[in-house]
Amino acid sequence: MLHKIMNWQIDEDELDEYVWDKATAQFWLDTRVPVSNDLLDWKQLSDIEKRVVKKAVGGLALLDTLQSEEGLYSIKKGARTQKELAVLSDFTFMESIHAKTYGTILISLNTFKDIEEIYDWMNNDPRMQFKAQKVNEVYQSGTPMQVKVASVFLEGILYYSNFFIPLWYRGQNKLANLAELIKLVIRDESVHGTYLGYKFRQDFDALSSAEQEAFLDWMYTYLDELLENEFAYTEEVYSEIGLADDIKTFVKYNANKSLQNMGFGIYFEEATANAVNPIVMNGISIETANHDFFSQVGAGYLMGEAEAMTDDDYDF
């Protein structure tokens, strides 16, 4: 087999190099955000609130581990260009950073016993395992297009039920450092989702009308299965603090965003930005040193802060 050198002077797809530059420019590490500074806020939370936050962070750790170990490996098999492979390698590394970040959060705020309990929960909870298994089934045996859809749905929808809680506390000026780490993760996932949505669309547009129709039947059936489980998971984890309905709306809002990233219309007409809990939208939008999630790391990063995000930050 002939091995070809990666020639960065050739533009097979101009978005590859653009995303490479932006993704590498916003590189960060979990160790530079002092989560332990949130200990005072953490101690003031009720036991129920602590349990919910731990489940949110633990659930993210499980899904990001899956994405770093299986997801990007499967996506690479369907890469269209050599530069795309380089971009996906960056994504793989950052997914590992994200998975470690959740461990850093748990270690900074909890005892060893608490951490063992939450790891046991996320490794055995039926709803969490359903998410991981349904996505990994596609990663292991799906077509390149199906794999991209599974990845976009994982990063753009299934993460967001657990992103909600840190943003909700940030909107109330609590757990600021934890939330800033989550905002850094969201900034990365926004790039990943929009890039893979774009790559998916290139494949989708090459299909015949009949093939497109058949694929959409599969995609929306798959989406409904994921959402049914996601809404049940949300009820189980978040109803005891009265936020289940708000989180479902947030998930629907991000489902619309994920579909738009792949070039489709919105799925939930009612799930607009105005329908999302304003505390969470405020938690996303609090300004720091930089405004654009595609900007350089900058002073905001050096101080352990993330860039402000707006509704437009979910799309290229």
Rank of each mutant, 00 (worst) to 15 (best):
L2C: 07
K4Q: 15
I5W: 10
Q9A: 10
D16H: 00
W20H: 11
D21K: 14
K22W: 10
A25L: 15
P34M: 07
N37A: 11
L39Y: 14
L40I: 13
W42K: 04
S46P: 07
E49T: 03
V52T: 03
K54W: 10
A61W: 09
Q67S: 04
L72D: 06
I75M: 09
K83R: 11
K83F: 01
A86T: 11
M94E: 07
S96F: 08
K100Y: 15
L106M: 05
S108I: 02
T111L: 07
N123I: 15
G142K: 01
T143D: 06
T143M: 06
T143N: 13
T143V: 07
P144G: 06
K148Q: 07
K148N: 11
F153S: 04
E155A: 00
I157A: 02
S161Y: 01
L167G: 01
K174H: 06
N177M: 05
N177S: 13
I182G: 01
K183R: 07
I186D: 01
R187W: 02
D188V: 01
D188H: 07
Y198K: 09
K199C: 10
F200I: 01
D203K: 11
F204Y: 09
D205N: 10
S208N: 08
S209I: 14
E213D: 12
A214S: 14
W218M: 05
L227K: 03
E228G: 15
A232Y: 05
E235R: 06
G242R: 01
D245T: 10
D245P: 02
K248V: 05
T249S: 03
V251Y: 00
K252C: 06
Y253P: 00
A255Y: 00
N256D: 05
S258G: 08
S258T: 06
L259Q: 03
N261K: 05
M262Y: 03
F268V: 03
A273P: 06
N290I: 12
F293G: 05
F293E: 09
L302G: 15
M303R: 15
A306P: 03
T310D: 13
Y314T: 08
